[in-house]
Design a protein around this nucleic acid. Structure first.
Lengths: 359, 359
DNA sequence: GCGCTGGACTTTAACGTTAATAACAATCGC
DNA sequence: GCGATTGTTATTAACGTTAAAGTCCAGCGC
């Protein structure tokens, strides 16, 4: 057995490098590298000694050097978009946190992209510039839509990427994670049916929104299955004012709505305002549901029944997906469809209601 | 004059490197490097020729190589924290966008940190780990407080950093950007005074919050200057329920409040709920103001009068500040105190009110 | 004509890592 | 006992960049 005089190189200070560890452990730099990246190539005793030295010196591999050598920065890029102040939802804020958390847990870091304006041209340019400068391992896209240029661009460059939002073109080769808006809206509809409502309207988004269509169909299916009429529907922009006006229309109908299932909390808040203007009590005379569980939903009085997206799972699955792609996993890309949770609050409950939003 | 046969090396494909540019331009790699970093070291004609070749080939310097060589990654680190779902404000979301936008404009990228839990120990560890692995150029901290460990840690490591939130210890050597909560609350108080209110309460945060103290003092000063009583005040946690209860107390006082200036939109929403429970109309019988211009503030009915932080300016100034520090600018670190904007909505206006929130 | 200075550019070496290859020793088959 | 095999560790070279040092030459003073 080797005696104490092994592994007694100098103790370095400041940034510790591979060769400093190597020197102290009495091996070559390559062996230290192997200890960390290919431990099975080393004799168990050597491996143990090296790892002990690594721990002793607190060595951490230099990512710049690794990136240069391996053409892999352990960075995942994500573009943050401006938060529209008129939108109630914190969804993207929570998403970013969840994504980052999972990325860090997997040994990656998130690097943020910026693109001015709405168009995808600017955004694609930002991706390309970043990719030219640094070997980003993967991209995560949010808010995909039909015929998304960004998807085409990233694919043409051969970069791994996954999207929050399914493939709307029926493209199976895309790795995506999404939340089932159809099932969510269906659950909301079934919930108001269970409260005894039979005249249920839908305040939804414009037809060009794929997400909006999904949500609308959830409502449609639930109504049709029960033989309920589906004539009360609106397809409007996602603003409070549009929701308000749509609600007024549906309450002015010959046979007025007693429940309004909305595609977003923003629209639902418009509906609540319309009810207020008519002196109708939410939940009691007219049930209202939203989508996304924005902070406002919990804060308004009465609380707004809404659907909560399991955003932490979305983040985890997306990182999982890009990890598989980066690893060149031969399995076909993941498609994950998650179920939102119905959060029931006063806006859809007829019963006597406590003064606070949720029991 | 040199004829056409200069600068005719091969046109490379894929990633373009310095030496490829050099070869094509007929110079050494170092000259290309100098053309980009020290243009004055080159003869004008050579400089021009090299820059033309750089443009022709679309060369972008490899950041990993630069980082390795220069010990500078052009990365600025920022820790994202979980968004509390009970909080109304999108402030951090908007802040991150603004910060990133300015960072990118200045040639940097934002890299996100993650730390589990609330404590700063975990956060400091995350910073240190990141710093060990990669030469992050600077850090940006948010939500600073008195005796902030993070500040001490970053300073002891000698890393440039700036904070969103002033130095609460009276430390002049800290570079910070902050929004004047005192002036903001004062403006809100003066606004309700101008509406004719004389009995003005303050629903504020607990005494340990430095930000809360600042905001409280704005209200205090405004009242004192006008000889108005300051007995109606609450120091509570930042939740809707606490705001609601505080409002009830102040409305049950022998001489009840007719205006409530709150330290946050969340508290203000609690106040609005209390008014609702008593059948009091916001603005008409009791004026209410919040702070932060959360999306909810615009969406509730009537709209909530609140203070908007100039968050894009905050981001810009913070990047400016760290740029100066990185450049080793000898001037003393920047302190920037910005003024919030009072957004007047129905909750503080007695007059006849249109059905939508803002005129 | 000789050394000297300064400008324009090049060469060398290094940042820290790891794939590829080489070197070496022990083990095996026959 | 000798080539082949296998297992272990070391050496070399390269990723793309740039500071530092070096080369080369024109212009200058004397």
């Amino acid at each position: 057995m080797e005696s104490q005089h092994v592994s007694r190189g100098p103790v370095p200070h400041g940034h510790v490098t591979l060769s400093q560890v190597a020197q102290r452990a009495g091996v070559s730099a390559q062996s230290v590298s192997n200890a960390l990246n290919n431990p099975d190539r080393l004799a168990p005793a050597t491996l143990e000694r090296i790892l002990a030295t690594v721990a002793e010196l607190g060595y951490e591999p230099n990512l710049s050097a690794r990136a240069l050598r391996n053409r892999s920065s352990h960075l995942i890029a994500f573009k943050v978009r401006p938060s529209r102040p008129d939108k109630a939802s914190l969804l993207m804020d929570e998403f970013l946190y969840a994504l980052n958390r999972s990325a860090v847990a997997a040994g990656y870091h998130l690097i943020l992209c910026h693109a001015e304006g709405e168009g995808s041209t600017e955004e694609i340019k930002a991706y390309r510039d970043l990719l030219k400068k640094t070997p980003v391992d993967a991209f995560v896209l949010a808010e995909t839509h039909r015929n998304d240029d960004r998807v085409a661009a990233l694919r043409s460059w051969g970069v791994p990427f996954a999207t929050f939002g399914r493939s709307w073109d029926g493209d199976d080769s895309l790795a995506w994670v999404d939340v089932d808006g159809r099932a969510g809206t269906r659950a909301a509809t079934e919930h108001v049916v269970a409260q005894g409502h039979r005249r249920i309207g839908h305040v939804g988004w414009l037809a060009e929104s794929e997400i909006g269509q999904e949500r609308r169909e959830g409502w449609l299916e639930a109504c049709r299955e029960r033989g309920l009429p589906t004539d009360l529907q609106a397809a409007v922009a996602d603003t409070l004012e549009d929701g308000r006006q749509a609600a007024h229309r549906m309450l002015d109908a010959p046979e007025p709505a007693t429940a309004l299932v909305c595609a977003s909390d923003t629209l639902a808040l418009g509906v609540l305002r319309a009810l207020h203007e008519r002196g109708l009590r939410p939940g009691v005379e007219v049930a209202v549901t939203g989508f996304d569980d924005s902070p406002t939903a919990a804060l308004v009085s009465p609380g707004l029944t809404t659907l909560r997206q399991p955003i932490d799972v979305v983040g985890r699955q997306l990182i999982q997906a890009v990890e598989n792609l980066i690893a060149g996993d031969p399995r076909e890309p993941q498609h994950v469809l998650l179920q939102p949770d119905l959060i029931v609050r006063g806006s859809s409950l007829p019963g006597p209601r406590p003064s606070t939003a949720t029991p």
